[in-house]
Design a protein around this nucleic acid. Sequence first.
DNA 1: TCTTTAATGCAACTCAGTTGCAAAAATAAA
DNA 2: TTTATTTTTGCAACTGAGTTGCATTAAAGA
Lengths: 126, 126
Amino acid sequence: MGVIRNTKSVQLVTEFFNSTKEAIGVVDLVEKFSEQMNKSTIYRILDRLEDEGKVHAFLGVNGLKHYAKCKDCSHTEHVDVHPHFQCTTCGKVECVSYEISIPKLPNKNIAQAQLLLTGTCERCTS
Amino acid sequence: MGVIRNTKSVQLVTEFFNSTKEAIGVVDLVEKFSEQMNKSTIYRILDRLEDEGKVHAFLGVNGLKHYAKCKDCSHTEHVDVHPHFQCTTCGKVECVSYEISIPKLPNKNIAQAQLLLTGTCERCTS
DNA sequence: TCTTTAATGCAACTCAGTTGCAAAAATAAA
DNA sequence: TTTATTTTTGCAACTGAGTTGCATTAAAGA
């Protein structure tokens, strides 16, 4: 349970997430960095960054894992309450700054809510 | 694009969904009917039932496909606007009768919303 | 510089879901 | 009922995301 080491690969991934506020699917990230690092490495780096709260993870419409770094992501414990939006035309995925209201259910204890919105983004809405 | 044939396997699956209002993961369904029918058959039957609007599909927390037949499921075109709840202790998954309000996003056209609630159910909440 | 410990690459694996194809079972037609 | 047509099924092989064991490499600390 040591410290995250500042390797070349970690730097590359971190820089990427600092450069965009969009979310990205792990598969795309693996493809993007296919020359620089191994698939396993990416999965493991993302795990560590998530543990540290540097990025947060969620599932896209197809059930594929996505990661993003949003403004909420610097807190020690990231509580993922904001929705995500995925464009069904261009595939773009992003965090939505909008606090969703979690419904109360009788006798149930709701710990987390994941809201995924799908449709067409500004560019793809004709 | 013919009619759905009323095979033994279709009957079994249909009866199952009529007997419960809970949702079930495809993996569990394959296990449940492992003696009666093949894995591919289940996947294909579920596809057909979904096309017909007899059941609806959604993804659980782990990204695994789940199906359920709820009261909304007899309409010709099923619009899946209700949330789902998954108990992190016992694993039970169910539809929640609660109309969620889809947030409007500027310049975006939101076609669908998927809300997944996780926590502990009535039985597992101590 | 040396030592310790974490991170990486690689290859092999797991597991959900899909697919091609021949055989079997429903439905429609005769 | 029998025959012809078309959908379903079983099977086995495959795809693709994500994981893992292990030997090697590279950080960080002393």
